[in-house]
């Protein structure tokens, strides 16, 4: 083995070592993101919502955890007022754990869909009293006056419900009422 091969081998070893350190740091960050919640749906973490698209560490730092990198998030709706708060929440959570140089950036494409919401997220939504998005449908039926799909009441599990309004308390929800238990409820609409 000549001197150059040795240098290259040493460099490769170092890269592999760096890569595995980076991978473990990235895993720690994903774990931390489980603790950042949507301010308007405080039972859902940003991971449950499916709005975190990627976590990258670009340059390892020699001293401690001052890694540089990005967390990429995507908005649920263009005008969602919770996005700024969520972005700040992620920054604060990371700083709290010593990740001072990780930026949070917003990407628009591919556009978010309720198909990215985790099953755990859907279960938590239902337990919170909000009907989770229908998993068989990610697009609104565009026909005018089309009969909306039957949505299950999150309180009494009846499918005997009716749409009151396609627009509800936040951009992501519609308003329904249950014919059986008579309770009004929010439905996290397909998108």
């Amino acid at each position: 083995m000549n001197i150059f091969s040795k240098m290259i081998a040493a460099q490769n070893n170092k890269n592999t070592e760096n890569n595995s350190i980076i991978a473990s740091e990235v895993a720690i960050i994903w774990k931390l993101l489980e603790e950042v919640y949507d301010p308007e749906l405080p039972v859902l973490s940003v991971l449950d919502l499916g709005i975190v698209r990627d976590v990258q560490i670009t340059s390892p730092s020699p001293g401690g955890r001052s890694w540089e990198g990005v967390v990429m998030i995507t908005p649920t709706y263009s005008g969602c007022p919770a996005m700024d708060t969520i972005s700040m929440g992620i920054r604060l959570k990371l700083i709290e754990h010593g990740y001072n140089n990780i930026k949070v950036i917003s990407v628009l494409s591919p556009a978010w869909t309720t198909g990215w919401m985790s099953q755990a997220g859907k279960d938590k939504l239902k337990a919170y009293g909000i009907a989770p998005p229908n998993s068989n449908q990610t697009e609104e039926d565009t026909r005018l006056f089309a009969e909306p799909a039957a949505i299950q009441c999150p309180l009494c599990d009846s499918f005997h419900t009716k749409l009151i309004s396609r627009f509800g308390s936040t951009a992501c929800k519609s308003l329904y009422q249950c014919h059986d238990c008579k309770e009004p409820f929010d439905y996290f609409k397909c998108h």
């Binding site: 908005p75 709706y77 263009s78 005008g79 969602c80 007022p81 309004s165 396609r166 627009f167 509800g168 308390s169 951009a171």
Partner: peptide
């Protein structure tokens, strides 16, 4: 609520 939701979408766009 519906018209103001639409308003918010347009503002976001």
């Amino acid at each position: 609520i519906a018209i103001t939701n639409i308003s918010l979408d347009l503002l976001g766009q």
